[in-house]
Structure formats: structure tokens, C-alpha cells
Amino acid sequence: MANPQHNNPFKTRFIEVLDSLDRYKDRDQHFRNFCTLSYCALAKQTACSQEEADSLEERYMSVVHSYKNKDDVRKMPELMTLTLTALQQGGCDFLGELATELEILDKQNGQFFTPYHVATMMSKILLPDIPQTIEQDGFFSASDPAAGAGCMLLSIADQVEAQGFDLSETLSVEAIELNRTTYHMLFVQLALRGIPAHVVNGNSLTQEIFEEAYTPISKYFVNTHGCLFKQHAKNRTIHTHTDNPQLNLFGF
């Protein structure tokens, strides 16, 4: 795992690209559009039906069509590459930190993101004996009912990798987030970090579910273990199931 990234050049370049886009849209809108485009492109890979895949494609194209200058759209892959590179180095909540710096959080509803060093400290305290758990069960699962952009889950992934384990085989995650844009950020970060995850746009208190998706690496995890979560993990905050036989993510 790399050291935490302070003032990293990926953030600087990301903001430079945002500022070079359509002047008729502000940073906030460009950032949200990037998150939507990235989410649709990644979530489509594990869509549970053709209807769901078509809906994601429609949303993707709706954002594309909102840009008169298609050169702006062609810059979005660079933002994806910057995000991917930063996340793969570990030690950061890249999109969450960017959202904080760009001041696009939903402050009226009390939204704020936990500093990464705080999440790291908390994850070290809360995590079980990782080697013992993995030796006993083959993998372990983490659940966050108010995941934000995924800071805590990303810090857990850092701890797993630091002990020499492959995330794609030893960690599965369920993450729930109410805010739609933050849900997109959450999914994109977990997907690009290579974490097998079921990500829910929903309300943990009311158990409402508005949308859900699986990160692409989840397919590999399921092929390895036969499920994404073990049967004894039924006490998750929101219980969701899928009838899709190709995924069969849950062991119950």
C-alpha cells in the first residue's frame, strides 16, 4: 500500500480538466456528470437484465448529449484514468476529497466526508484478525450502512492489501448511500479499487432501495467462492436479493 496522498498531482490535474470544460456549466455539474458517466459505464458490465443495461446506456447518452462540444466528453476518460491511478495507489478517498475541495457536498443535509487518516485509524480498531478470518472462511465481508463516497471501505481495502491479500478474492462489501451523486462516487471508487461489492442507493433507516449495482470484479469473486456473502451474513442492514442466475451473488 502506498503512503497517503497529500496534495497529489492527480487532484490538481483533475481540477484543471474540469475547469477546461464547457463554461456554461459549473464545476459542480461537470463533476456530477463525470460521476454519472463513470457509474453508468461500470455498472452496465454487471447489469442484471437487458432492460437495466439499456436504462444505464440511456442515462449515459443523456449526459453526453448535454455537451454541445464533444471534445469535452472526450476529456472524461482522462478524469477516469486519474481516478483509477490515484485509487490503485491506495491511501486516499480520491473523489470524496475532491468533492470536499470543490465544495459540492450537500451541506444543508449535514453531508461531510470523514478524513482518510481518521477512517484508517477506525478501520484498524474495528477490523477482525484478517489472516485468521480469511483462513477460516476464505474471505470476510464488510458492510457500511452510510458509506458516503466509500472512505471507510477504501481504508479497509488498504489494510487487507497491506497484509498481503488479494482484494478480488478475500474481501466483499455491501455499501449503502442515500445521496444519489455520492452513490455514484461510491460505486465508481469501489469498482476502480477492484473491490467486490454490492452498492445500494437507499435509506438504511427506512430500508428503501432506489437503485443497486454490483462492481465488475464481483463476477470473479462469485466464480471463486460461489456467492458474494455467506449465509450467516443475513443481519446486514438492508436485505437484497437477485434472481439472476448468472450472478447468484448471495449464498441464501
Score class of each variant (00 low, 15 high):
M1T: 11
M1Y: 09
N3D: 07
P4I: 13
H6I: 06
H6A: 02
H6W: 00
N7C: 02
N8A: 05
T12E: 00
F14K: 01
I15E: 01
I15P: 00
V17F: 11
V17Y: 10
D26F: 05
H30I: 06
N33C: 04
C35P: 01
C35G: 04
T36D: 14
C40Y: 06
A41D: 07
A41P: 03
L42D: 05
A43N: 13
A43F: 06
T46W: 03
T46N: 15
A47N: 08
A47G: 09
E51P: 08
L56R: 14
E57S: 14
E57R: 12
Y60N: 10
S62T: 15
V64T: 15
S66L: 10
Y67M: 12
D72M: 09
P77A: 00
M80I: 14
L82I: 07
L82Q: 09
L82G: 12
L82K: 08
T83Q: 07
Q89A: 04
Q89E: 08
G91E: 05
C92A: 01
C92E: 09
C92V: 09
C92Y: 00
C92G: 02
E97S: 14
A99H: 03
Q108W: 00
Q108P: 03
Q111D: 03
P115D: 14
A119C: 05
T120C: 05
M122S: 14
I125P: 03
L126N: 08
D129A: 15
Q132M: 09
T133K: 09
T133V: 06
T133M: 05
Q136D: 12
D137Q: 11
D137Y: 15
G138I: 11
F140E: 07
P145Q: 08
A146E: 10
A146Y: 15
A147F: 14
A149P: 06
L153F: 02
L153D: 02
L154T: 10
S155P: 12
I156Q: 02
I156P: 00
A157M: 04
A157Y: 03
D158Y: 01
D158T: 04
D158R: 04
E161L: 03
A162C: 00
A162V: 00
A162F: 01
Q163P: 06
D166Y: 01
L167P: 01
S168Y: 06
S168C: 05
E169C: 12
T170Y: 00
S172E: 12
I176Q: 06
I176R: 01
E177A: 08
L178M: 03
T182D: 10
Y183V: 14
Y183F: 15
M185G: 01
F187I: 14
F187H: 12
V188E: 04
V188L: 08
A191R: 04
L192M: 15
L192C: 13
R193V: 11
R193A: 15
I195L: 13
P196G: 15
P196I: 06
P196Q: 13
H198E: 10
V199F: 12
N201W: 15
N203L: 12
T206L: 09
E208C: 03
E208Y: 05
F210Y: 09
E212S: 14
E212M: 13
A213T: 01
A213D: 06
T215D: 10
K219W: 02
T224E: 08
K230L: 09
H232N: 08
A233R: 11
K234Y: 15
T237M: 08
T240A: 06
T242S: 11
D243H: 05
D243R: 03
P245F: 00
Q246N: 11
L247C: 13
L247Y: 11
